[in-house]
Design a protein around this nucleic acid. Structure first.
Lengths: 332, 332
DNA sequence: TTGTATGCGTTATCAA
DNA sequence: TTGATAACGCATACAA
């Protein structure tokens, strides 16, 4: 019933017939890999338009061995965090602008997922994010031989490309500011020492140590691993009269700030909250807009990752790079 | 230098050679579309294992016209919302369990993006989310002829499948509770009337009207379209001494609750906050855990969407369905 | 500047 | 129960 000539998707053969040229000519017009006369090109493009032709992706990737698809390994949603979404959406948009699509590979699949998409040829390149310092997926990616970019800096980076916010520099900024604001103490919440296996946490802590070792006022660093809702109270408690404690952590700031607000100590002069957070924090409330903030610049990191990958894919003999995005205070 | 026999990815031909069978036999073992003797199957599977063979996805989808890829249209990240991530990740995971991969199509691409992935054959099915009541993408999906599932209920659903939380029922729950708690007033924040174009908001408001029309204590509904940070204060202001106002909205609860906490009126007996929010809200603080909460059940909705799509893809003659997930109070 | 011919690695039909 | 063989739709080497 349903099938007449129109129900079948048009092929380059159909286009060729309508334009009165050879099938290969249609292909050459599309790939641009051979000069085509202005007149022929126009006729072909007309026919393409008229038929609503789109090249079949299976055939194309079978023949050219390039699928036009980039695999993106996404983390599990832990504790209702939504930040990965901004990475994912931006990466997807940027990739599309360069002519690529994004295919998701879940963390659940692990290194085997990497091997799968590499071996089947669904993906011709890979982006990884939320990596542990030692992450089996990194090895799988490098072994696959596909061009890749990591968001974050794992240990065995090999000669892969990587892009991320400079977490060491971030730590330096935090320490510098704590000193500048005459805080003798810096409380780091979120159990960072227990999360040292994360590549970003590890770099941050390295940066803290380095900053402490540099000249400057003495600064006591306290690692807090307790429940986030208790952070403000604990910070308040360990602050002697007339002194001031700086409070910072990687992620989950909102929870800490909420607890502070609920306890009425969000603007307590004895506490100096600082946050790694985007504009959305400032937009939530004027009170939060006043908090010194370093933007994680997720969109920039994402764009950089895609650009780097496209470079690896398209520039002959491109060599892997490590690119760090500079953190900055958003409110002076 | 680099190319010896090992550098090429093995094909079913290689497997056949090693197993001493015909290439087609390998294919039959893989697809299961023909009975194979136990002995032959074992030999083939051994060879597959030994070579680390994975069928080439381009060739497979060229020949079978099934790419094993589901397109997922994702929204733009507006105002730092991260909820879409839970949908995306869950959908991706469930799809993988059914043997499919998820390819992202950004909202930026619009209806043309739908047409593209459909025409090129990259995707053999589609999932749409965050739809407007009238959304050009819906038409494009239906026109593509691909099996599809909408998360949300747009107007021109046609005979597409749809899955979502039952927002009409959600409204009924909210109204019922406001009445049960003897609130003469319900304040709805977030400018819902201005966001009626959204399919979920529209259904919610329909549900509100229906619930109000039913028997019960009189309830005044106030639509608040002002800044979220001012919601608690405004709610407090319009509440006469000794009375109580219920406060609810779709999304952005955290901002409102933060403002309430900061103003010290989170537990004001004159206000009755209720929230559409997942566990993460309760986990943020004991204060928030006490707030009556309806879970949006994003994971369930996502799983249902994937299951429905898989049914459409795999069950011969399957007919589209509309499935609503029942909202419930998480704290009594 | 264009056309002809070949093969990418599968799936599935036709024989045996 | 299995083998040979023919497409699927495109990119590109080779001819003209």
């Amino acid at each position: 019933m349903r099938a007449d000539s129109r129900s079948r998707r048009p092929t380059s053969q159909d286009v060729a017939r309508l334009a009165g040229v050879a099938q290969s000519t249609v292909s050459y017009v599309l790939t641009g890999s051979r000069p085509i006369s202005e007149e022929t090109r126009a006729r072909v493009e007309d026919a393409i338009e008229k038929l609503g032709y789109h090249p079949n992706s299976g055939a194309r990737s079978l023949r050219s061995r390039r699928s036009g698809v980039i695999g993106l390994m996404v983390p599990q949603p832990r504790g209702g965090r939504g930040e990965p979404f901004e990475f994912i959406e931006t990466i997807s948009r940027e990739a599309r602008r360069a002519g690529y699509d994004i295919l998701l590979v879940t963390e659940m699949e692990g290194a085997e997922g990497i091997r799968r998409v590499a071996r089947t040829g669904v993906c011709e390149a890979l982006i990884l994010m939320e990596l542990d310092r030692r992450d089996e997926r990194v090895g799988a990616v490098l072994a696959s031989g596909l061009p890749s970019v990591m968001i974050g800096i794992p240990e065995a980076l090999g000669d892969g490309s990587a892009v991320d916010l400079d977490f060491e520099r971030l730590a330096a900024l935090v320490v510098e500011r704590a000193r500048a604001e005459l805080c003798p103490r810096l409380l780091l919440f979120g159990g960072l020492e227990q999360r040292r296996h994360r590549n970003d946490v590890s770099r941050f802590l390295t940066g803290i140590d380095a900053a402490l070792a540099r000249d400057g006022a003495p600064l006591q660093v306290i690692h807090d691993a307790g429940p986030l809702a208790g952070v403000p109270a604990r910070a308040r408690e360990l602050t002697p009269e007339g002194e001031r404690t700086a409070v910072f952590g990687l992620g989950r700031v909102q929870q800490v700030l909420f607890a502070a607000a609920a306890a009425g100590i969000l603007t307590d002069p004895a506490l100096r909250f600082m946050a790694l957070a985007g504009e959305e924090l400032a937009a939530t409330s004027p009170l939060l807009a006043a908090i010194p903030r370093i933007d994680p610049r997720r969109a920039e990191v994402s764009e950089l990752a895609v650009r780097e990958l496209v470079r690896l894919l398209q520039v002959e003999g491109a060599t892997p790079r490590l690119q760090l995005v500079e953190p900055e205070w958003s409110v002076a």
